[in-house]
Design a protein around this nucleic acid. Structure first.
Length: 274
DNA sequence: CCGACGTCCTGCTAGC
DNA sequence: TGCTAGCAGGACGTCG
């Protein structure tokens, strides 16, 4: 659920609260997340200082003092927060790390599509991924972008969601980017002109940048690293607005299914070539 | 190889 | 009012 802007917000919130803190103890629920937590990892993690917290695509990388990594993915409903140890533990909380202050680092995940794993190094972690992660979607080489799109028969929605092309875009921001670029998400990559591809590349950057400034979108249960909700849902132009009037031309927004995901678009604004 | 689709899981709600 | 089918910010396994 959380996409790049939400994950970035979590990371920015967590960094000052986790940096230089020691992970003292761990208690876990009996339920498993998407990836299994190895009991052997507790010795690798406990007693170690967190030296930094960063983001790569939708992944959260907490670096420990020996350069090993605690890697977290929020899946659809993950919440990764630093909370006062005295605050009540909500249901579906699966990991609780006590810290060397009065706080706890908690991972809560209703649907359990997320994961927490430990890796000796970043390269070892990257090797465990299904496919190599693409570059961050800011300042992407226009030629790299164009080559990927023009070579594909897949629709634009599927290409934007493909983490190996560019890392971090999900369902919300794919729709918002297509709307902003004025391009129909059903079109196949190979049909794009160079100009359209460039418009789309820039729209992705702009949408993500503005969404980060708004601390992401809280649609259902997303919260930042301090439990604060996002604000970008108030600025959504397409996502979740099927059946409602386009803010630009008042046409009723349509929806369809692309790459297995509900996709909303304006047939007028996203059809004509600008 | 590529592209499309199913699966994992729980909770909420639109529609009957 | 009560029930349930269907859908939800993702990643990945499998099938044709």
């Amino acid at each position: 659920m959380p996409e790049l802007p939400e994950v970035e917000t979590v990371v920015r919130d967590l960094r000052p609260l986790l940096k230089d803190r020691t992970l003292v103890s761990l208690s876990r629920s009996t339920k498993q997340l998407r990836k299994k937590w190895s009991k052997a990892w507790e010795k690798k993690v406990l007693g170690r200082v967190v030296t930094n917290v960063n983001r790569r695509g939708k992944w959260i990388l907490s670096t420990l003092e020996d350069s090993s990594l605690l890697v977290t993915h929020l899946g659809m409903t993950g919440q990764f927060t630093v909370t006062e140890a005295t605050s009540p533990r909500e249901n579906h909380t699966h990991f609780i790390f006590t810290l060397d202050d009065d706080n706890e680092l908690r991972y809560r995940d209703i649907r359990r599509f997320g994961s927490i794993t430990w890796h000796p190094s970043q390269s070892e972690w990257e090797a465990t991924l299904d496919e190599e992660l693409g570059p961050e979607p800011f300042g992407v080489d226009p030629d790299y972008w164009w080559q990927n799109f023009k070579a594909s028969k897949r629709n634009l929605k599927a290409l934007l969601l493909d983490q190996s092309i560019v890392a971090g875009v999900g369902n919300i921001y794919a729709d918002e980017s297509c709307f902003r670029a004025g391009i129909d998400p059903r079109r196949r990559g190979e049909t794009l002109t160079k100009n359209e591809a460039e418009r789309l590349r820039l729209a992705v950057e702009e949408v993500l940048t503005i969404a980060i400034e708004s601390r992401g979108s809280t649609i259902r249960n997303y919260v930042g690293g301090s439990g604060l909700e996002g604000e970008f849902q108030q600025q959504l132009q397409a996502y979740g607005r099927a059946g409602e009037a386009c803010f630009v031309c008042q046409t009723i927004l349509q929806h369809t299914r692309l790459a297995g995901r509900t996709t909303t678009f304006c047939i007028v604004c996203q059809t004509k070539k600008k």
